[in-house]
Amino acid sequence: MLASLIYILIFPGFAFLGVFGLFAEFFDRKLYARLQNRVGPPWFQPFADFIKLLGKEEIVPCDANPAMFTLVPVIALSTVVAAFLYIPLWNTTSLLSFNGDIIVILYLLTIPTLAFFIGGWYSSSLFARIGSVRAVTQLFAYEVPLFIGILSAALLANTWSLSEIMTFYNKSPVLALFNILGFGVSLIALLGKLEKVPFDIPEAETEIVAGAFTEYSGKFLALLRLTLDVEMVAGAALLAAVFLPFGLGANPVIGFIFFIAKVLFVIALITLLRTVFARLRIDQMISFCWKRMVPVAILQLLICLILKGVIQR
């Protein structure tokens, strides 16, 4: 009982994820700034922002549904933290694991977007409503290539359990190299999930202010921003677990350093992508996802199927 509480609240639960998420935000912002030849924020900036937002007054719009409006940030944050509990850190076993957990992770990571939709919708601001509709429209576009990309890797490993996938690739790392297309597709889809350029359409600042978050303030906004940070870490950790299965099984300290390095590497790739692209329009984004990314993801699926046939023979 006590152990579970520690797992959930401290490590690798809320406390660790919160700190790591905020650090990841700093890493992302600092790298983004340096790529743009700027100085960037000091390391404590995301923490300071978070604490400042916690201390601010929160305003619930008159027309908004107060219950929905206030519940949404909590739901969003808790689902991403829950998803993280299924992802192994320094070895191949995670805190919670069963056959089929990879599907659960993917679904848990979808819930924040739906939560943003509900929050934006119930905040009854026009900007928030447009933003939330865009978020859901986008969801249907990037989710399919993301699922195909990640699940084709699982298919090759012949299991639906993340731990077993990692064990499989750890045994034969060469096979992981065949998943490179899937990695690319999932990385780009992750940009959509995290609402980052070029897919930051739901919160396009110059068009609809802050999208679904427009009416949020104070604690709720702090939680929503933390959700995005933690989601970034969880998404990066998932990609690292599935596509970069190296350096596992050694002693926990080295394994943990490897884990952090892998997550930061994925985040660095995300940052690089958001530095060199302009924001797409929602119609362009959807046609890009369906016409470019889905075929590549299906190609990855075919590669995995053929490879599987070769291995089994």
Binding site: L35, Q36, N37, R38, V197, P198, D200, A204, E205, T206, T275, V276, F277, A278, R279
Partner: peptide, 9 residues
């Protein structure tokens, strides 16, 4: 158009 890198440069 959401291309802040161009703005900074």
């Amino acid at each position: 158009i959401g291309f802040d890198t161009l703005l900074m440069y």
